[in-house]
């Protein structure tokens, strides 16, 4: 439903003005602070005794962005698609490693207020983003073969939905040649989705496989790995049910967002 709403707002905003249409693409990065994931990592590192190197926090994530902007007078309308990812690895003495591929695919739409001058344009922007966070967790043996099956507790393909996160920042466009511009966005991505403390603002990462729950495994990632290992998946889930948002890894991925790319102003679209 939110997609239809956002698209309607966007189209109405576009039709109300005579805009300059531009398309852009470039490198996207997030200096992330992913609290529940980092809590899990800390408890996982603390519990393992045969590690050669510890698993890292979510930290820096890189990827790409591509989108369209419409600007007219002091307004900017923007919609873009983004993907950022990183891999975190813990190495063990037997030559194997636990690998966690983290990826966030999201769509962003929003508006900005600012001004396009002759050579430079600058806008203060506010966005809403929605998408899915994916986490593939698997064990890699010394010979490179990957085990994502049911032999190990943490193995799985986890996914969590981001309902609607707020982002805000500054977007700057610097003219390079006639219709080509350097585009820089710097801003902040909120960690939690908008809304009150309800299910929609606190989705957790879940392995949706039909076979994951066999043998008392949990289909989520525990933030207290020691407790999870000692109690077992079923008991852990039961005992922490009332504090689910803190006891499992959620979708609270956020942080400082920086993207740099090239913007092309489509000739003939500007009326001013």
């Amino acid at each position: 439903m939110k997609k239809y709403f956002l698209i309607s707002v966007f189209i109405l905003a576009v039709s109300a003005v005579k805009p300059q249409i531009s398309i852009y693409g470039g490198y996207n990065s997030l200096f992330s602070n992913y609290t529940t994931f980092n809590t899990f990592v800390d408890s996982y590192n603390a519990y393992q005794t045969d590690m050669l190197s510890k698993c890292g926090h979510s930290g820096f994530m890189g990827g790409y962005t591509a989108g369209v902007t419409y600007s007219a007078m002091v307004f900017l309308c923007d919609i873009n698609y983004n993907q950022i990812f990183c891999t975190r690895t813990a190495k063990f003495q037997d030559g194997g490693s636990r690998r966690m591929d983290l990826k966030y695919n999201y769509i962003v739409t929003g508006i900005g207020i600012g001004k396009q001058f002759e050579k430079i344009g600058i806008w203060a922007v506010g966005y809403l983003n929605f998408g899915d966070i994916y986490l593939n967790s698997y064990y890699e043996f010394q010979d490179g073969s990957k085990d994502i099956g049911s032999t190990r507790q943490l193995n799985g393909c986890y996914v969590g939905m981001v309902a609607m996160k707020f982002m805000y920042g500054i977007k700057t466009s610097i003219k390079v040649v006639k219709n080509l511009n350097l585009l820089i966005y710097a801003g902040y991505m909120a960690k939690n989705s908008l809304g009150w403390k309800d299910d929609y603002s606190h989705f957790t990462l879940q392995d949706l496989s039909y076979g994951k729950m066999l043998d008392g495994r949990m289909d989520e990632i525990p933030t207290d790995y020691k407790k999870y290992w000692e109690l077992g998946g079923t008991t852990y889930a039961y005992r922490t049910y009332t504090d689910k948002w803190n006891s499992t890894v959620g979708c609270d991925l956020g942080g400082f967002n920086l993207s740099i790319g090239i913007k092309w102003d489509i000739p003939g679209t500007k009326t001013e």
Binding site: N136, K146, D147, I148, S150, C157, S209, Y210, G211
Partner: peptide
């Protein structure tokens, strides 16, 4: 069978007691 991820494929069947038996392949 089913596949919900690039890395994983799941083969399954129901046993005599009505329980699902799943076997996961890692796919490269």
């Amino acid at each position: 069978w089913l596949k919900d991820n690039k890395m994983r494929s799941d083969f399954w069947e129901v046993d005599g007691g009505g329980a699902e038996r799943h076997i996961f392949f890692s796919v490269k």
